[in-house]
């Protein structure tokens, strides 16, 4: 564990807490893409298949349970909670995310570290996480104005993988046989997808204006 990875995990945790706060405090999921939340649920379930077979540390196990639990809880809320689901606008959340699932799984079948059930699903989860934010970003562009909590949720979610890139650089220079090129390349793509959001977020913060993404 290094400071960059810990900062990344904490930033990821904060993004989840901000999202839970928004949904539970405002009893509304306006501006949140259910499809992105479903994709993240698939990402965590596919990545943490070793949850009960490989014990790394208490921290690792606890965080995995938090990530799986929170993503499934949000999906459940947006689908079945009688108050929250009313604020879900499926007319703006129209990204066909099943293509992302199919495409990433196909890619994982061809590009993986080892052709085993767990490694293919692990690579699949890494590729899928890189593009999972797309429905959310498209929705924000469609819905124009972004409420503060939703903006902060996306900001922290984008920042966490940026910290992981620093972690991979650090591990590359400090550990000899470190080679996580699947994570690195996907992590770079993932963070790059947030680039324009970060730009407009910074502009709105600088001008102390409401965050607006150009359609």
């Amino acid at each position: 564990m290094n400071i960059f990875r810990f900062a990344g995990d904490m930033t990821h945790l904060i993004s989840i807490l901000v999202l839970l706060l928004k949904v539970y405090a405002t009893k509304s999921c306006s501006g949140i893409s259910l499809k992105t939340q479903e994709l993240y649920g698939i990402v965590f379930l596919a990545r943490y298949l070793d949850l009960f077979t490989d014990f790394i540390s208490v921290y690792n196990t606890v965080m995995k349970l938090v990530f799986i639990g929170s993503s499934l809880a949000i999906v459940w809320c947006m689908r079945f909670h009688r108050v929250v689901k009313r604020s879900y606008d499926r007319d703006v959340d129209t990204f066909r995310h099943y293509f992302l699932v199919g495409g990433c799984f196909l890619l994982a079948l061809f590009v993986h570290e080892k052709f085993s059930f767990r490694e293919v699903f692990w690579a699949f989860s890494i590729y899928l996480e890189a593009v999972a934010i797309l429905p959310q970003l498209i929705l924000l562009q469609r819905s124009g104005n972004v409420d503060n909590l939703t903006g902060q949720y996306v900001l922290f979610l984008g920042a966490y993988r940026g910290f992981y890139i620093l972690n991979w650089i650090y591990r590359y220079f400090t550990e000899d046989q470190f080679s996580r090129w699947i994570s690195c390349v996907s992590g770079l793509v993932q963070t790059a997808l947030y680039a324009d959001f970060f730009y407009y977020y910074f502009i709105s913060w600088k001008n102390n204006a409401k965050l607006k993404l150009p359609a």
Binding site: R5, D50, K64
Partner: peptide, 10 residues
């Protein structure tokens, strides 16, 4: 063979 070490990152 290279034992794929358990992925220690989240």
């Amino acid at each position: 063979n290279v034992e794929t070490e358990a992925h220690d990152e989240l």
